[in-house]
């Protein structure tokens, strides 16, 4: 059995499952994961001052409460304008895409720090 600790720095992106469980328990390891996705999600929103404010989302049969909406920006896909919401909870950053034509939400980016 290899007892050497894995060579990890706090900013290395890697798969947490590849880390031996023993060392994961013993070492104060920070897992960083950045994924580009395109998954349809359900989002609970409120409408306030002519703005959409996302509050919670459901992805992969799991509910996430949105603690903070950090940035909202738009982009053009041809003539269509889509909205991106950069939101976060205590451990995750999510980038959500709202297609106003079809009122469809997608999770397009996930960054986990925990």
């Amino acid at each position: 059995m290899d007892l050497n600790p894995p060579n990890l720095s706090s900013t290395t992106t890697y798969n947490p499952s590849a880390v031996p469980v023993l060392w994961a328990k013993l070492l104060p390891i920070t897992f960083l994961m950045h994924e580009l996705l395109n998954d349809p999600i359900d989002v609970t929103v409120s409408f306030k001052d002519n703005r959409v404010v996302p509050h919670a989302m459901r992805w992969n049969e799991r509910d996430y409460k949105i603690d903070s909406v950090n940035l909202v920006h738009t982009a053009h896909e041809g003539t269509k304008r889509v909205f991106y919401f950069s939101v976060s909870d205590a451990a995750n950053y999510f980038k959500l895409k709202l297609d106003p034509e079809f009122l469809e939400w997608r999770l397009v980016e996930l960054y986990t720090d925990g």
Binding site: T11, N70, L71, S88, D113
Partner: peptide, 13 residues
């Protein structure tokens, strides 16, 4: 700084 605004886990890093 735009990315740090969007993603709070990048702030201060």
């Amino acid at each position: 700084s735009v990315e740090q605004q969007a993603n709070p886990f990048l702030r201060g890093k």
